[in-house]
């Protein structure tokens, strides 16, 4: 199963019909190896979305580089705003292991974790 996606993209993204809500899905270990794909998934859009959902259902691990990538996303999209709404970026469906890492880092202060 782990190799199922090895030659396809490990990051996919989907924009809502109105273009304001972007869902990014990450497959396998969420680490530095996919920083380029992750960055491309949101930075190349003509109209920046106002809401983001990161679906972690298929993410098997998440390291500090990935936490950094999530911070970059937040910075890229809301950098100029003083108060980023807490539900602007939602992290979804993290498995127990990944949820523990988010909890230890206290990222619930920055992201809406469900």
């Amino acid at each position: 199963m782990a190799n199922l996606r090895s030659d396809t993209s490990r990051v996919t993204s989907e924009l809502s019909a109105c273009g304001s809500h972007l869902t990014i899905r990450v497959y396998g270990p969420f680490n530095f190896n996919l920083h380029r794909d992750f960055l491309d998934s949101y930075s190349s859009l003509p109209q920046p979305p106002t809401r983001f959902s990161i679906d972690l259902a298929e993410a098997t691990h998440l390291d500090s580089a990935a936490l950094g990538m999530l911070l970059l996303l937040r910075d890229h999209c809301f950098g100029a705003e003083v108060e980023v709404p807490s539900d602007a970026v939602t992290l979804l469906n993290a498995n127990e292991h990944v949820a523990t890492i988010l909890e230890v880092s206290n990222f619930d202060q920055l992201f809406d974790i469900r």
Binding site: S64, A65, L67, G68, M69, L71, L72, D75, G79, S105
Partner: peptide
């Protein structure tokens, strides 16, 4: 560290 580090870096 906030002033110095790039946005994707931090220190536990």
């Amino acid at each position: 560290l906030h002033r110095l580090l790039p946005a994707n870096m931090f220190c536990c």
